[in-house]
């Protein structure tokens, strides 16, 4: 059983170093972006599917704020939050969701294949566990080329049972690669509960089997997440190897925007909304005197406007030319 050994003081000191205003801005951006994405999907403007990060913002932002710009992040199918947290441009993201040539991938990738290579965001990924090898490999490059970079692999509780997690963790452990595996345990893979699918019931305790640290934190608590992430990222950067950070969180929406949601109760969702991470940060910034309520409201309005502009940008952009079909298959 893993234990969070950090003292309130440690957490407080971390909080003091954390730019809460920026964190709030990012979290609001993520939420409003994904709410807009869901609306556009339901309006038929986004094809395929979209996987909202709504409710999980503290994890993406909390971890990413512990990283340098040259550190790597790999993501999941639920990747908008990680992209935004890594500093991604919501206009290019929205354009990509709308399949426009101005999108991050020229319209060729869609929601699950948004990447911002310049920001070392190695992409959302449509394969569960697909980012594990990518992150571990990025850590290997960092090691070989002595860049001092760290790689963070975001994955969901549904990926805990992919064989590749075992293989990459083991390899990273024996090679002491600078990678942190961050599990966003939002309680459900698609419809199956993680407390059912994870044998042994405690994902963090598996870390001990590899001789690496494993920790479970409250994923709805930005500061707790950030604090733990800082520890593990620094440890990895030092060359002490990988760790498992299991963040307990929740997605208010379904697995994707068309999820029938017949596998969980409405009451459960309401219970989790009581500990909404954004509300908690809003209270923290106001209570801590970092921002006034009016500033918070203004910030939120600013983010709304930004998202609206992003949607307009996307809708106004052209679709890709057919002559772009066969380009960029090979370098």
């Amino acid at each position: 059983m893993s234990v969070d050994l950090r003292t309130p003081a440690t957490i407080a000191s971390t909080a003091a170093q954390l730019d809460l205003r920026e964190a709030l801005r990012l979290m609001l951006t993520i939420r409003l972006f994904d709410e807009q994405a869901v609306a556009l999907f339901r309006a038929g403007e986004i094809r395929g599917s979209t996987h909202p990060y709504i409710g999980m913002e503290a994890v993406g932002v909390g971890v990413t704020l512990a990283l340098r710009p040259t550190d790597y992040v790999t993501s999941t199918h639920r990747g908008h939050g990680h992209t935004i947290a890594k500093g991604g441009d919501v206009r290019r993201m929205m354009a990509e969701l709308l399949g426009r040539s101005t999108g991050y991938s020229g319209g060729k990738g869609g929601s699950m294949h948004i990447a911002d290579m310049d920001r070392h965001m190695l992409g959302a990924n449509g394969i569960v566990g697909g980012g594990m090898g990518l992150a571990t490999g990025a850590a290997l490059t960092a090691r070989l080329q002595h860049t001092g970079s760290v790689a963070v692999c975001f994955f969901g509780d549904g990926a805990l049972e992919q064989g590749v997690l075992h293989e990459t963790t083991n390899l990273a452990a024996i090679w002491k690669l600078p990678v942190v595996y961050v599990c966003e345990n939002n309680q459900y893979a698609m419809s199956t509960r993680s407390d059912w699918s994870v044998a042994g019931g405690d994902p963090a305790s598996r870390a001990a089997g590899y001789g690496i640290p494993g920790l479970t934190v409250d994923g709805m608590d930005l500061v707790a997440v950030h604090s733990a992430a800082c520890d593990f990222v620094e440890r990895a950067r030092r060359g002490d190897g990988p760790a498992y950070l299991i963040c307990t969180t929740y997605r208010y929406h379904g697995h994707h925007a068309a999820d029938p949601l017949n596998y969980r109760e409405r009451e459960e969702v309401e219970r989790w909304r009581q500990v909404d991470p954004i509300e908690r940060v809003k209270r923290a910034v106001v209570d801590g005197g970092v921002m006034t309520a009016a500033e918070v409201a203004e910030l939120e309005r600013g983010v709304e406007a930004e998202i609206e502009a992003a949607v307009e940008f996307g809708k106004a952009s052209p679709e890709p030319d057919p002559d772009q079909l066969m380009t960029d298959i090979y370098a």
Partner: peptide
Amino acid sequence: ISEEAIAAVAVGAAATGS
């Protein structure tokens, strides 16, 4: 003996400058 990791990690390394 981890064929998936061998390939997957190689991909990640290749995508990041190795």
